[in-house]
Design a protein around this nucleic acid. Structure first.
Lengths: 210, 210
DNA sequence: GCCATAATAGGAACACGTTCTACATCGTGC
DNA sequence: GCACGATGTAGAACGTGTTCCTATTATGGC
């Protein structure tokens, strides 16, 4: 692996979000870029998402790519956010099976994890990006964090009328942390999929013994 | 930030460890390299640890640096392991204050976290490296993980004669995960030191209410 | 339609992790 | 002492993220 960085600009430069884009042509360019990123990541992981390759595949100039996404990290995290939103909209309309909160949370996590592990390269790319993100990507990352927390608290209380308590949110955040760590360990080849699942299950058990 | 990678070699190539080094001159070179890494990281963070700069400061040729540590990541993770061992040997001989396991664990974590937050750039460098490590760095990372788990279970049971249970170890691992996530969020400027501490404390409270 | 301005294309240039090449030096067996 | 292989030095070269520059093309106001 080869890796290099330069002085963090630490600007608040964000990716051009969908709302900022006036014309249909621009929205289309943005979509083409994210699609290209997705395909390259799925096929070859983090290393295969090369800015020149993304630009080529999206039929966009390199400079344009950088105008839409100020760095490779922004690009990948944005792609992650889009996928996460998709997954979440699918999840939202399902009734989650399980009798206890712990069972339902485990179900949701396994479901999501399995989805990720079905595309190992993609997951590797997105997790790496997530891990390398700095403050300038905070907005995008916050999006993902909120989606995850919402998903977990919803699993704890399937009844839409029950507002999650502070404690619920805290538990969801801890589970999210464990999940992220487990994902990193898995992505970097330091633990197997089975170990990841077992570790998650243990953590949920420790946190949600009612 | 600029960042680049190449196809992961996925070799089991490890850093030359101290034992492998015959001559005193070699042990000295290794030490000079780790010292240089430490200083550069402390002063300028991940980006400042540039292989050419490390080689210069350690008065070693670039090729030699790569002979001792096959990548920037190995270099930084090895430096982290060395610092962690130092911290651990200091900790080992202290009696940890606190009446409950939770109090003692929180004490240890805050102590360690404060140490890290006193050197933000260093912490940023080491955390980034940790996050970017792949399977070829598994050995070095495992060292750090074991040290952390040992530190935490020891805080739970200060009595040396009490063997930690499986449950203790599981809890320690979850706390380690939360800690890592919090550290990443802090390092990347997505949360403040205070938030990091509060989040840790909440997590410990959830896991260790006796 | 026509101009001003922004957006895009195309591609050169630069930085830094990593690799490679040519040569020097050290240490060991003889 | 000497030859030789391992180790080290010096620095060029390469790949990829990022920046920059110039020419061309859309776009919106008149």
């Amino acid at each position: 692996m080869k890796l290099q960085t330069m002085g963090v600009p630490m600007s608040t430069t964000n990716s051009l979000s969908v709302e900022d884009l006036g014309s249909a042509a621009q929205r289309d360019r943005r979509k083409r870029i994210l699609d290209a990123t997705y395909v390259l990541a799925r096929e070859g992981g983090f290393d295969a998402v090369q800015m020149r390759a993304v630009a080529d595949k999206a039929e966009v100039a390199l400079g344009t790519l950088y105008r839409y996404f100020p760095s490779k990290i922004h690009l990948l995290v944005s792609a992650l956010a889009r996928e996460f939103e998709r997954n979440e909209t699918v999840m939202r309309d399902l009734t989650i099976p399980g009798d206890t909160a712990a069972d339902r949370v485990i179900y949701v996590m396994k479901h999501t994890t399995r989805g990720l592990q079905g595309d190992p390269k993609l997951t590797e790319a997105l997790t790496r990006a997530f891990m390398f993100a700095d403050a300038s990507v905070a907005a995008e990352i916050h999006t993902v964090g909120m989606l995850l927390t919402a998903m977990l608290t919803r699993a704890m209380h399937p009844d839409v009328n029950v507002e999650p308590t502070d404690r619920d949110v805290a538990i969801a955040r801890v589970i999210g942390d464990v999940w992220l760590s487990a994902l990193v360990a898995w992505v970097t080849g330091r633990s197997t999929a089975a170990e990841t699942g077992a570790h998650l299950e243990t953590a949920v058990g420790l946190l949600l013994r009612d």
